[in-house]
């Protein structure tokens, strides 16, 4: 634990009803995350990594147990409160970038700030700062379709970081990237983590990502199999 606890998960279970019956994705998780961590939840497909990230990100709710994120119990938030939490304090990075296709790079990065109702001047400064950290100032007017995969993911990172959230949740962020781009992006995220003390939580089974983690939580069949601090 690097600092004060900002995420506390106790006895977390998540069940899904599937055509084949009830499927338990998370089966009693107890973990805590501190501020400025650079942590990965690793494990094979179906181990519950993404489900855990979705619950931390208030996109889903626990079936049993508690997930307290930044002082708020996810299971008890209503739709509006959950949206507000995501809007103001959480950032997301997705495997397939999830950029808004009709918007330019600038507009994609600006989007979270529009939701926060910041004024034009503030927005412009924050977007340009964010694009500068990611080395994208020359792509301001480009649309996602005009960018490479690496550039798209950098835009996604810029979008997640632009409002300087306390937690960034990254679900398989390098899965669609080649090795060089993956390393470039991971180095950028490490740098942002150090500079802004943002907590990064990854869901991944990519060895390249694992190589950068400072804490690795292994999930198997919805349970924490191992929780270890690495030497990075």
């Amino acid at each position: 634990m690097e600092n004060s606890v900002i995420i506390s998960i106790q006895g977390l279970k998540k069940h899904f009803i599937t055509p084949g019956g009830r499927f338990t994705a998370l089966n009693g998780i107890d973990i805590e995350f501190g501020k400025a961590e650079f942590t990965g939840v690793v494990g094979p497909s179906g181990s519950g990594k993404t489900t855990l990230l979705n619950i931390i990100g208030s996109l889903d709710s626990p079936s049993e147990g508690k997930a307290i994120v930044l002082g708020q119990s996810i299971g008890e938030l209503n739709v509006k409160q959950a949206a507000l939490l995501r809007r103001s304090r959480l950032g997301f990075i997705f495997q397939s970038y999830n950029l808004l296709p009709v918007y330019t790079v600038f507009e994609n990065v600006e989007f979270p700030l529009l939701l926060l109702k910041l004024n034009d001047g503030q927005r412009k400064k924050m977007v340009m700062d964010s694009l500068e950290w990611l080395g994208l100032t020359d792509k301001v007017k480009s649309k996602p379709a005009q960018l490479s995969g690496g550039e798209c993911q950098r835009v996604a990172i810029a979008r997640s970081m632009v409002k300087k959230p306390e937690i960034v949740l990254a679900d398989e962020p390098t899965a669609n990237l080649d090795a060089a781009n993956s390393h470039h992006i991971l180095k950028t995220m490490v740098q942002l983590n150090k500079e802004f003390k943002t907590t990064f939580i990854f869901a991944t089974h990519d060895d390249k990502v694992i190589g950068y983690l400072r804490r690795k939580i292994s999930l198997i069949d919805g349970k924490v199999a191992k929780d270890e601090i690495t030497n990075n």
Partner: peptide
């Protein structure tokens, strides 16, 4: 995906 992204970025479903 776009709808999911809007929600993830902080918009409510409504």
């Amino acid at each position: 995906k776009e709808i999911g992204t809007y929600i993830a970025l902080g918009m409510t479903r409504y």
